[in-house]
Design a protein around this nucleic acid. Structure first.
Length: 606
RNA sequence: GGGGUCGUAGUUCAGUCCGGUUAGAACGCUGGCCUGUCAAGCCAGAGGUCGCGAGUUCAAAUCUCGUCGGCCCCGCCA
């Protein structure tokens, strides 16, 4: 690898001088990190992407002209410094910096570009608000922390390219202006100038194209693909995000798992120096929800959901006994050491399960005598012992109990579990990476709004072979060859084996009630392609931004993107989106409808 | 679409409940002093549309309504 970064304006970077360079005459360029003036003796910290090097003047040695130019320096000035590399005097070495052994004794300092006083100080741990940092993103990106993360992202994409190339994949670009897809997320639309009233969409993902590439016989495809969705944002969601998009022909699920495991292991080894244990555990969706209450469990926290339904059946305690009779579940989760929680802390946990739709969280402290609860005296002691046995709680623990329909109870306790996991992870050392595959998701789900059956992933997902016979009779029970890659409670990727057989595709389309005309309009080109010999195929898309976020230990996806948008999809640096020039709109055959005036509700004068 | 929370000096915040003196602190900035710092130190100084608009009041950073923006969450995200 080429390491010489010398250019016309510099001989070395600010990160590479060492004791062995003593005596060398060098020229450095960079940004003024800080200047410390001790009354004629200057210390100048010069910063670039590679590090920080200290530049000094020695008493009596520096010319007046040099001192003058040093006195004029301010933070973030871009300067060029020439001088001689010297070892620092005894006791003056800075062990916190790779260049800390040496300093450059300045002979000449030239300002290449001055700088306004920056709105916030460029240092690793800034306390500047995020909106300000986004407005001045170029200053934010100068911070070593972000430089490190952006560098890590580069290493991840380069390693991905090298690795997939080594496994015979072709990197193929797919279009940015595509056909709108009426189902799924909202599209970003692009008006057509040539065709009044018609629109392109920006791709939500290259899904259809990568499948067509399989039909085209490309066999193995990947792309570092930009995906755009006009949906509301979150801490780990941006309107444009990047996926490592992969598709392979003649494969089954295990082929995809193996490929991704090798790729991810390589990334963690090459980029982080961390070895991962392969293969990752595989867990069926149903079991995953029963045990962890989530389809993306954080396995760093070991606690699992316990089922108390059998233990409390027939109890005189109405909340439990009657619920079981009505076919509901009584499930719970142990909060280790939770017996010491204050009322307020325990209430906060209850709020979590309520957010997931549970009516409440019954709490029981485990003591030497049994369960100490608000309902304890109404729950028979042997049933209380049965609960303790069922969840393995120990003295001092708290058992949180939810009574609800099975999946609702799972979801609620999953939320509680995620909360406990996050709390545990906050105190734990970083570097604990727990991967798993969650597979065999349901093929369909009921659309809560319309009540209709809709594909859980997309309509090209292959059902599990053994479930094919009940496709029509019990579609919601049909599982799919559909999988997520999960790490530490975060979904890093999602994929499936696709339907390549016309007959199965038609049955699936019939179940979701798509008529031929709608189908033709939306997916005609795709179905046509599939009539000309579609190979069995499948793939996955890994969220690059989230992956880098996890590898960098960052809490926000915005740290991993050079120019991210706010949670309201604004770009604070350039002000996008902005209003269009009327002439441009004219050309695009677009007229802006005035926003309907809202009724004034403010208090008027009496 | 909905909820929560925040918006005061260049920055991060206090002050807001309970309206009333000249709106404070730290960092940064400017000037001075200082011969080994690396978060340098010491002294002095400048710096405010209290997000914006309306209302209530003798009086609004403070109360009310609206609005704009940041962050977080629910819905949404095949």
């Amino acid at each position: 690898m080429r390491t010489d970064r010398s250019t016309a304006l510099r001989t070395h970077t600010c990160g590479e001088l060492r004791g062995s360079d003593e005596g060398r005459t060098v020229t450095l360029t960079g940004w003024v990190n800080r200047v410390r003036d001790h009354g004629g003796v200057y210390f100048l910290d010069l910063r670039d992407r590679y590090g920080v090097t200290q530049v000094v003047t020695r008493p009596g040695e520096a010319a007046a002209e040099l001192l003058e130019s040093l006195a004029a320096l301010r933070p973030e000035f871009v300067v060029q410094v020439s001088g001689r590399v010297a070892r620092r005097p005894e006791g003056m070495v800075n062990p916190d910096r790779p260049t800390g052994e040496v300093e450059v004794v300045a002979e000449r300092v030239e300002t290449l570009a001055p700088s306004e006083v920056p709105p916030f100080v460029i240092e690793d741990e800034t306390n500047a608000g995020e909106d300000l940092r986004l407005e001045y993103r170029y200053l934010d990106l100068r911070r070593p922390r972000l430089q490190r993360i952006i560098g890590m992202r580069h290493q991840v994409t380069m390693t991905t390219r090298r690795h997939l190339d080594g496994e015979g994949f072709l990197e193929i670009e797919t279009p940015t202006l595509v056909k709108p897809t009426p189902e799924g997320a909202r599209d970003y639309l692009v008006p057509s100038r040539e065709y009044p009233g018609r629109f392109y969409a920006l791709p939500q993902s290259p899904q259809l194209y990568k499948q067509i590439l399989m039909v085209a016989g490309m066999d193995r495809y990947f792309q570092i693909a930009r995906c755009l969705r006009d949906e509301d944002l979150r801490a780990d969601r941006q309107p444009e995000h990047t996926q490592i998009d992969i598709e392979m022909s003649f494969v089954d699920e295990e082929d995809v798992y193996g490929l991704v495991e090798r790729l991810v292991a390589r990334l963690f080894t090459d980029v982080l120096g961390v070895g991962l244990e392969l293969p990752f555990p595989r867990l069926d969706y149903d079991e995953c929800l029963d045990r962890f209450g989530s389809d993306k469990p954080d396995l760093r926290f070991e606690g699992e959901i316990a089922d108390f339904t059998a233990a409390v059946a027939g109890s005189e305690f109405q909340l439990f006994g009657a619920a079981v009779e009505q076919g509901q579940c009584v499930k719970g989760l142990v909060v280790p050491g939770g017996g010491a929680l204050s009322r307020k802390e325990a209430d906060a946990l209850e709020e979590e399960v309520k957010l997931a739709g549970a009516k409440g969280l019954a709490r029981a402290k485990v003591t030497a005598q049994g369960l100490e609860t608000g309902f304890g005296n109404r729950l028979e002691p042997d049933r209380a012992q049965g609960m303790i046995a069922a969840c393995g709680a120990r003295e001092g623990d708290l058992i949180g109990v939810v009574v609800a329909e099975r999946m609702k109870a799972n979801r609620a306790l999953g939320r509680l579990r995620a909360c406990l996991a996050a709390r545990a992870a906050a105190g734990a050392a970083p570097g604990d990476y727990r991967f798993l595959w969650v597979r065999h998701f349901p093929l369909f789900e009921r659309d809560e709004e319309t009540g209709r059956i809709a594909p859980a992933h997309h309509m090209f997902t292959m059902p599990l072979a053994e479930d094919l016979p009940r496709l029509e009779s019990d579609p919601l029970a049909v599982r799919a060859q559909l999988y997520d890659l999960v790490m530490n409670g975060v979904e890093l990727g999602s994929g499936s084996i696709r339907i390549h057989r016309r007959d199965i595709q038609e049955r699936v389309m019939k179940v979701i009630g798509l008529d031929g005309e709608t189908l033709e309009r939306r997916f005609g080109f795709m179905l046509k392609a599939f009539q000309y010999g579609a190979p069995p195929h499948g793939g996955i898309a890994l969220g690059l931004d989230r992956l880098v976020m996890q590898m960098a230990g960052s809490a926000s996806i915005r740290d991993t993107i050079a120019f991210p948008k706010t949670t309201s999809a604004l770009s604070l640096m350039d002000g996008a989106p902005s209003e269009a020039d009327p002439a441009d709109l004219e050309e695009l055959h677009i007229r802006i409808a005035p926003r309907a005036a809202r009724p004034q509700e403010g208090p008027g004068p009496p």
